[in-house]
Design a protein around this nucleic acid. Structure first.
Lengths: 199, 199
DNA sequence: TTTCAATCTTACCGATCGGTACAAAATATT
DNA sequence: AATATTTTGTACCGATCGGTAAGATTGAAA
């Protein structure tokens, strides 16, 4: 039995760095050199700690979901807040993150989903991305089905298409964020879209 | 002076094949092996005919814009057709193309725009994609500014945000097309979005 | 202090990347 | 038929890809 040399890096910190690289370059576009240099470690350390590129990606994706995805959903259940305002806060929160200068532009999941359709991404990676892409639509649909205010506005009758309308908006802004657009132009787009589903 | 051996392939046909590969895999994801094998030629033939990978991409992108992009805009100037119906036909036409089974899913331009933000794409390629991404928003803004029916509905007062709302929709559906979504679910999303800008 | 397990660095593996040199094959002009 | 010109196929270039073997280095348990 025995101890052994200690890890010279923080695993979560390295995972965050890897996530940033995948967020900017996608799975296939992120090379091991990109990853390990951003993580501040060499390749063997990465392989012994995370397994391989695909397993690193799976863990980085989970890290993204937990730390950069789920934080926005709290807006949807703010107490004493009208439904429209909750949704607007949620959408604005997501879109602000898509444009945040301290992170790569756009949405990690949307980037990897578009990449996955190339057919060159490993199976487990593709599956996890597909699952992650379904989280917001499912949450929104559930909200439209169950929220009392939504029900009183009859939004539960079109819960699925209402949710998909907002999911489409977020994927659209994620694409625009990757281009030369600026966040300020998108505020009226949020309002227009909320108007469109009857809010 | 003299002739010489004839080209054994059709240049436009090869360009269409290259475009399909870029459409599926993006610029960086498309390897020369992918490209030349789909084009049915060898690498030296590609280099002598198109220059290099980037120049091939520029020509393939122009080919996409001319043959798969501009065809939709005719809907916007259909005679004796209400504005909402023209816009709905335009949006449906684009979205149908994004889901067409004979082509790669989604939108060539949107795919390459998300890829371009990685910073690993050559300059001219990035510039052309940025220019192409601005075509639909510019056309729509001009429509909202100049169409008599749009003016009578006061849609010209928010021409830019109205155009951006529809552009966001199309980028959003392009992202969803790359995932597991089906086109049928998107019809109400189009209606919702048109409702949202007051149509 | 010795021992041993874990992590580090360095150097390398075969495969593929974008791109090209070169000569055989094919067509036009003389 | 002879020759000049262009395209073709093959085989290769250095660089990078994802991944790893092996020994030097570190640190905890005995």
């Amino acid at each position: 039995m025995a101890g052994g040399r200690k890890l010279e890096f923080d695993k979560q910190q390295a995972l965050e760095a890897a996530m940033q690289v995948f967020w900017q370059k996608g799975y296939l576009g992120a090379s091991l050199s990109d990853l390990t240099s951003s993580m501040g470690i060499n390749k063997p350390s990465m392989y012994s700690t995370f397994g391989n590129k695909e397993k690193l990606f799976l863990q980085a994706t989970e890290h993204y979901i937990e730390n950069h995805g789920k934080i926005h959903v709290a807006c949807l259940s703010l107490p004493d807040t009208p439904l429209r305002e909750r949704l607007k806060k949620f959408l604005s929160s997501v879109i602000s993150a898509q444009f945040e200068s301290s992170n790569p532009k756009g949405c990690y999941v949307m980037l990897c989903m578009t990449e996955a359709a190339s057919g060159d991404m490993p199976e487990q990676a593709r599956d996890l991305i597909a699952e992650a892409a379904g989280l917001f639509p499912a949450l929104l649909e559930e909200l439209f089905q169950q929220d009392p205010e939504a029900i009183s506005l009859a939004l539960d009758k079109n819960a699925k298409s209402n949710a998909l309308t907002l999911a489409t908006l977020l994927n659209g802004t994620a694409a625009l964020a990757r281009g030369d657009y600026c966040q300020a132009d998108l505020q009226p787009v949020i309002d227009n879209t909320l108007n469109g589903i009857g809010l």
